[in-house]
Design a binder for these strands. Structure first.
Length: 131
RNA sequence: UCAGAUGGCUGGAAGAUCGCUGCUGUGUUUUUUUCACAGGAGAGGAAAGUCCGGGCACCACGGAAGAACGGUGCUGGCUAACGGCCAGCGAAGGUGACUUCAGGGAAAGUGCCACAGAAAAUAUACCGCCGUUAUUGGUAAGGGUGAAAUGGUGCGGUAAGAGCGCACCGCUUUUCUGGUGACAGAAAAGGCAGGGUAAACCCCACCGGGUGCAAAAUCGAAUAGGAACGACUGGCAUUUGCCGCUUAUCUUUCGAAGUGUCGUUCGGGUUGAUUGCAAGAUGUAACCGGCAACGGUUAUACUAGAUGAAUGAUCUUACAUUCAAUUUCGUUCGCGGAAUUGGAGGACAGAACCCGGCUUAUAGGCCAUCUGACACU
RNA sequence: GCCCCUGUGGCGGAAUUGGUAGACGCGCCGGAUUCAAAAUCCGGUUUCUUUUGGAAGUGUCGGUUCGAGUCCGACUGGGGGCA
């Protein structure tokens, strides 16, 4: 599989504070796929060339090995997808679900692209969340 | 060959592309930083559970004796220490290799033993048996209850019986022998003392101050050098000094230190960085001592340091494993071996201050020693 | 990471020194009352079975004991605290 990534100049930064995670969850804009949940929210940072992404894997995913593995795969997927499909001045949170251990990496990337597309399309019309 | 026992080792490999976190060096940079390049490093046998033992840090102090509380519990050794390990003893289980055991004291004292049963522990006598006789005496063979009933079997003995007597077995005490010891063996004496429970209180011996790296220290930022209440802040003395008070569970005592700190509540600020934090009861190898655990000497190595938490993502190739189909060989007709093709597919699991153990989880693979059965020589 | 607490029917919650487990309340089911419902009153309510009875059962497994919800050990689920 060849992975030529066309970077738009967006650099990825990692969210670390709990308050940021809560703010993005409160915005109530999310898209659910079998392997993960994608949440997003606009931020107020002036630097327009960075996109901030946070990763979450709760105890429902499994033990420590499975949780770390899930976060690594999410980080790898974000590295390949966010540079192309993300919108600047937005923060994202990727939440792992149980099926992330079984799904193939190609499908993970496809789902993430689809989720971002749907989120930004829906955000234009209304603030209602999909299910 | 089959079945098993014990101990130990291992815990996936190779390659390609793209990345992550420290360290070292060079360059850039006024310096710190940042960035670029190069080099080299980067999870486990359990990293887990947090069940024990230490190091280390703080709690206003150390020693000795006692009390309380908690823990351990056959013997000897190893260890920094331990509830761990090694070697033994005893009991129970197994044909055997071997396995399991909180395994001190019930004759210091107290408590408890439901129901049933005459009686559940200073014993006692319901039905019985025997004698005398008209109300009692002897007895513990037999009956029945219970988890448990005051030695067991046999012979003698007797009114009936009973360690009442004897033999064997068991038990207790004493002595001797062997052993460092737990204990083992032998002899003599005693007609039998003695129910269970100490993972009930307890006794005996030994050990233990508390809290935990979110300990603790420094820097920065911020605001204030916060407020209220309580505790001891004392007395003589001009200084030395004397008495008193305080000093990590409590009391007593010895020495030393101290007399401005501590506790609670309210209010404000910070939710940062650095140190602690990686050379140690360290690993590996050889030799020596020891049955062994382990110890000693020499040589050699430096081997993770993250903090929404790095050590990876994707793909390919064989290899172990497994499923299905086909062919073939053997067959005790259950199936087993070999080859080919196609598919599935890596056990348990992630350092968080560091060590020594224990416990629990774990696909498979390999090695050594030993036991039993069968066959052959 | 470290330190604590706790587990009993569908739910809350009892069970004195170890001696008949499911007290009591809520809920649920059936009946009475009512034209009907609510309220009230009466009865039942751990599970299985060959049903006047028997067996299992206090998160799981093991041990001590004649006997364990209770005592001891190991595991497991849930909850809380610590800058």
């Amino acid at each position: 599989m060849t992975q030529v990534i066309e970077n738009k100049g967006l650099t990825i930064d990692t969210l670390k504070k709990r308050s940021d995670f809560l703010r993005i969850a409160a915005a109530n804009k999310k898209w659910i796929t079998p392997a993960m949940i994608v949440q997003t929210c606009e931020n107020t940072i002036d630097d327009s060339s960075t996109v901030r992404v946070g990763y979450t894997a709760s105890k429902k995913v499994g033990n420590a090995v499975k949780r770390n593995h899930a976060k690594r795969r999410l980080r790898e997927a974000a590295k390949q997808v966010m540079g192309v499909s993300a919108v600047k001045n937005h923060d994202y949170v990727l939440i792992a679900r149980q099926q992330i251990a079984e799904i193939k990496f190609k499908e993970l990337i496809r789902d993430l692209k689809w989720a971002l597309k749907r989120l930004h399309k829906a955000a234009g019309k209304s603030g209602s969340h999909n299910n």
